[in-house]
Design a binder for these strands. Sequence first.
DNA 1: GTAGAGGTTGACGTTACGTCAAGGTCAAGG
DNA 2: CCTTGACCTTGACGTAACGTCAACCTCTAC
Lengths: 252, 252
Amino acid sequence: MDWSIQEIARIAGTTSRTLRHYDDIGLLKPSRTGHNGYRYYDGPALVQLQRILLLRELGLGLPAIAEVLYRETDTVKALNSHLEWLAQEHDRLARQMASVRQTIDTMQGDGKYMAQDMFDGFDHTQYKDEVVERWGKDAYAAGDSWWRNMSADEKQQWKDRVSKLGADWMAAAGSGVAPDSAEAQDLARRHVEWLRGIPGTPTAVPGGDVKGYVTGLGEMYVADPRFAANYGGESGATFVRDALRIYAEGNL
Amino acid sequence: MDWSIQEIARIAGTTSRTLRHYDDIGLLKPSRTGHNGYRYYDGPALVQLQRILLLRELGLGLPAIAEVLYRETDTVKALNSHLEWLAQEHDRLARQMASVRQTIDTMQGDGKYMAQDMFDGFDHTQYKDEVVERWGKDAYAAGDSWWRNMSADEKQQWKDRVSKLGADWMAAAGSGVAPDSAEAQDLARRHVEWLRGIPGTPTAVPGGDVKGYVTGLGEMYVADPRFAANYGGESGATFVRDALRIYAEGNL
DNA sequence: GTAGAGGTTGACGTTACGTCAAGGTCAAGG
DNA sequence: CCTTGACCTTGACGTAACGTCAACCTCTAC
């Protein structure tokens, strides 16, 4: 009154490999083993198997299933905690989808956001005079050479990063969180890290006055509408400036 | 003008192990390698890294990221197809959560569903006369012995499976799909597989008249209110009967 | 005897690294 | 010169749940 491994696999709608695996990890042992090593399963084993497969379809991991089957763990309790995990994953995916959509929108540049041509990823040829005046000749030379030596593709990528950062700033400013919130401070951290990628600026030079530089940049974003545009205008730039100042004072 | 592996990891908010991994798989090579094998990264490498990390945060896999960075794949296009995948996963989780909730409800027995005491997982002591009459003495003996030899826990599990199957049948019947739909036919398949777990019945005996047995069972579910109750009453049982008959004719 | 179906035990591949393990490199201090 | 300690290197295993060979054994049927 028992079945071979292939038979029971077919009956239960799974594969023999799965049954061997369950045997290996001790989740479901065959009810009988032939002298030749063949595995045979009887009725109760089939019941166990189908119970396993049912729980598996619900997304439980094999250790959790074993817990339910062979320890004193309540099935309903296990399913409830599993449900909680599923809900978290569900939320995480929703947030990630929102992020991806936001990024796509920003990269496509739907006109409403991003005055990309104005900011243009710190295009030093466009802002030469200001750059020299604000950060010195050496900084300009280093930054300019760096920018010129990038391939068109690298430049585009740089611009994309700038766009993404700007979009995230606007989203944060628009969501009503405070400049000293964890979210805004994390953006500030990203912002500073991004600045480190520009050679010649104090953030990229050992011993540079990063704090003063970052704080000053924030002021510039507010004062200069060409930069403010990248953060949703003056109100957005003000948010960025405040967040950056708080970050600089606390971390730089 | 470059950084050691630890420095750049700290700047970008990741770990040195990750950078070594990216080097291994060719996703991001260090801009320079010391005579001692030390890895060093410059500005453009940092830009690349941050771009990688940005895409990674959005959930893209490393191969997809490499595709975007080093092949002619459009970032927006990649993100769009990624978004599609995210949406599918999101839906899948939603369905799985519904399934889990359904199972929990059924197992807790909220009274509205499941006359579990009546069906009682083919309790052969309870239905002795009918079982003998309908399926013969041998079938009764085999089934009774099988049932008696189950531990209390195994019996409970068997009942749980019965409950789950019944709940799924009711859900299907209530959703308005046809008895010959893929969903209903899959339930029929599960139903027959479940029957195979009961020794002594034709489904479990080689050469048994499975087709006639399954079809007859379906009729019994409709005719006997004690069984019909498990499928949501007569209308539900009728759905089950029709689905089983179609399945039996096509597959048994 | 042999073909063919079905069984067995390894062992690698899958995602993106975390986590040792063993050992080389480098600057600072005794 | 030697040591200490921080930092670097290259393996290699582990993770979830099997799919997929590979090499070899077993049983039935013709």
